[in-house]
């Protein structure tokens, strides 16, 4: 599989000195779901905006589907689908009318557009409300509509910019299911930005963690998590000497004290090591009070590479999110 998107030192500078995207180099393979993960203001949306030719790059290049984003922007636009962060459907039209209008933007032949729209509506369970005005839709329905508006012209690449921003957790996991469905059925490459770690973890084949416009690390979510070197098994015993005895267990990475009668056992893979640990406990007749297994989450990966917690939001974005939420709830 070749790379469908290649960026070379892609850079966007605002006001002469603010580097929103700083010499970005990423390769995205055909058919992947590729995540761009980063805190607000990390440069994810700016990257998407450049790749979708909504804004020009300040320096560096990128090819999307083989076309140069600066020199062949029209060709790029024809072969990609975009689901921007904001809602874009016209509330005064029906869902189907919105889809039809966008299909006309791409000169999709009428009959083909009709069939395609029908299939897309079915794919995201929107057949029933398709002929209602968009202003009557719930937040989840509006987001589902946005998802397929970007697909009416059969693009090879779909850009999803924060597809579940402002949605409640149930609707979010439902959206993930639809995204997976789309990737499977329509065979598109998906570029997904998110600052929800669970989202990237659930969807992305590979992810780049971005901060201050730079890629800090790239890999599959699983790789990134194992790069943290290990799962943690925390065990609390009845007596302190039992906890000390635990330190003699072979075949683990590290055993450290973690409070009264408690040790943290670091292993490379808890699923494989847990039987050994339990064996060790029972052969040494140690009495355990409590045992927990903690797999590293992307939260920790993120913390490790950016040095900060992704959940700390800046007020500007919180306002934007509120606005989106308010509109979604109407």
């Amino acid at each position: 599989m070749g790379d469908i998107i290649i960026t070379r030192d892609l850079t966007k500078v605002y006001h002469g000195h603010i580097k929103a995207v700083d010499n970005l180099n990423i390769n995205i393979g055909e058919g992947e779901i590729y995540g761009l993960l980063g805190p607000n203001g990390a440069g994810k949306t700016t990257t998407i905006n450049m790749l979708t030719t909504r804004i020009a790059s300040s320096s560096g290049t990128a090819t999307v589907n083989g076309y140069d984003i600066n020199k062949e922007s029209l060709k790029v636009r024809k072969t990609i689908g975009v689901v921007p962060q904001d809602l874009t459907a016209d509330e005064d039209l029906t869902g189907r009318e919105n889809l039809t209008m966008v299909s006309q933007f791409y000169d999709v032949p009428k009959q083909e557009a009709r069939e395609r729209i029908e299939n897309l509506l079915k794919l995201v369970d929107m057949t029933e409300p398709a002929d209602r005005y968009v202003k009557t839709y719930s937040g989840g329905m509006r987001k589902r509509l946005e998802l397929i508006v970007g697909l009416v012209h059969n693009p090879k690449i779909l850009f999803l910019d924060e597809p579940t921003l402002g949605l409640d957790i149930q609707t979010r996991s439902q959206m993930w299911e639809y995204v997976r469905q789309i990737q499977k059925e329509l065979d598109v490459t998906i570029i997904l930005t998110s600052h929800y770690l669970e989202e990237i973890d659930a969807l992305a084949d590979r992810v780049s963690i971005i901060d201050h416009g730079k890629v800090l690390v790239t890999g599959s979510p699983q790789e990134l998590k194992s790069s943290l070197n290990g799962d943690i098994i925390t065990i609390t015993f009845r007596e302190q000497n039992e906890a000390d005895a635990m330190k003699n267990i072979p075949g683990v990475l590290e055993v450290t004290d973690s409070g009264p009668n408690t040790v943290r056992v670091k292993v490379s893979n808890a699923d494989e090591s847990l039987p050994d640990v339990i064996n060790f406990i029972s052969t040494n007749k140690l009495s355990t009070m409590k045992l927990t297994v903690q797999k590293p989450s992307l939260d920790e990966v993120f913390l490790e590479y950016t040095g900060k917690d992704i959940r700390v939001e800046d007020p500007g974005d919180a306002r934007k999110m509120m606005m989106n939420m308010r509109r979604l709830r109407q």
Binding site: R54, K78, L87, T88, Y106
Partner: peptide, 11 residues
């Protein structure tokens, strides 16, 4: 209200 974003990303 958002539709402009859609128009600008279309060819």
């Amino acid at each position: 209200l958002g539709p402009m974003g859609r128009f600008l990303s279309s060819p």
